[in-house]
Design a protein around this nucleic acid. Structure first.
Lengths: 213, 213
DNA sequence: TAGATTGTTAATCGATTAACAATC
DNA sequence: TAGATTGTTAATCGATTAACAATC
């Protein structure tokens, strides 16, 4: 059980396991097996057992896994056993939609600041459903300073593709360690900065390959 | 060059190559090498050459790849050399944001229909920026019938997690072959149905693992 | 006890990389 | 010609699966 050596591909599956387990828990299911969990997430039972075994022994022979126990441990392993503050950069249509979206806070990610470079947007309040969220759009010029004095380590990048790399460089300077990138470009970053890409068009294109006609 | 046997993992990288090449083309760059492309997308030059070689020979020794030529072929390989009509199911905040989003049509995916089950939404026009998009929200009850008479093979699923599997079953019945799933649940589908998952929280959790403190 | 299911080992399978002849 | 870069082969590396003793 050497936690320094866990392959990325295993880590990347843990949130998917966690999501399925939380869902079962919401349905008042308190026990599962690698077999059952595997069917829900489309992964073999052997692989799930192997993945989990990287981090400890969480199951019991004959009965499987106690869901609340496994959820608790997965959250701790992923460092999502406490809330994270995140910043949105780029408050266009997409940035606004993300700021409004309720799904993040439910799962422990709270939008704590948002920035744009457009002078006509700076200072405007951000609405959350129909009420104000308490946030207002800050000037991107002050980003480094504002983040330095915060505990924010993750950013959601919602600027146009043409600005994405320059803004990324600023985020890195500001001490950001993880970037959820909605801009349709690959980012170049130092090796200790993690980037996750969200590009729905890439998803559609991957499917198009397999669809005949 | 057996196109029936191309590993999924190779197919999944092609849209990323295409995106980077289109970007270079927009910057009036007409030639690249596997080395240069690799640096942009964070993949080794050898892997890019190996990936492309699955589909033919697109480069020239000494000079590399002619970008417009490679773009054309990648589009053809991915079946995105023509536009696709897609349907949105679930017109909550997220579905509306997606319907408004301009980025899809630019890259060849046109929202052609949208559905919801909420009677108060049915019949309402969908706005695209400030003007009407020409779409209005249709009753989910008529989904199978409406899709059967269309050429729509892909859906974007924006319903709540609790409804996602049931709606998926309907989409499959309606002849949909690819689902871009925004609901935070794994879907169970027949083997010939492709699913791509978009869950930003999963992305944030994957990064949280690596961020100390 | 009998049945179920874990954690783990060894075997298999597949993906990535290194190297280089071919050639533009 | 000399330098650059492809496409491809063989070697390496890593991930997945099958199988099973341990045990609840």
């Amino acid at each position: 059980m050497n936690l320094d050596n866990v392959p990325d591909i295993i880590v990347s599956r843990l949130p998917v396991y966690l999501r399925a387990l939380e869902r079962m828990y919401d349905h008042a299911i308190m026990t599962t097996s690698s077999q059952e969990l595997g069917e829900k997430v489309g992964i073999s039972a052997a692989q799930i057992r192997k993945d989990l075994s990287q981090f400890g022994e969480f199951g019991k022979q004959g009965t499987g896994y106690h869901i609340p126990f496994l959820i608790e441990h997965l959250r701790r392993i992923l460092h999502v056993d406490h809330p994270w503050n995140v910043v949105i950069v780029g408050m266009g249509e997409l940035g606004h939609a993300i700021a409004r979206y309720q799904g993040f806070s439910v799962r422990g990610f709270r939008v704590a600041m948002c920035f744009d470079s457009d002078p006509t947007k700076i200072g405007r309040p951000v609405f959350n459903d129909l009420k104000m969220s308490g946030l207002s759009i800050q000037d991107e010029k002050n980003l480094v300073e504002a983040l330095r004095g915060s505990n924010i380590k993750m950013a959601m990048l919602c600027v146009p593709a043409s600005a994405a790399q320059a803004v990324t460089d600023v985020l890195v300077e500001a001490g950001i360690k993880g970037i959820l990138n909605y801009a349709p470009v690959n980012l170049v970053t130092p090796r200790d900065i993690r980037v996750q890409y969200i590009d729905p068009t890439v998803g559609l294109q991957r499917m198009a390959y397999y669809i005949k006609e």
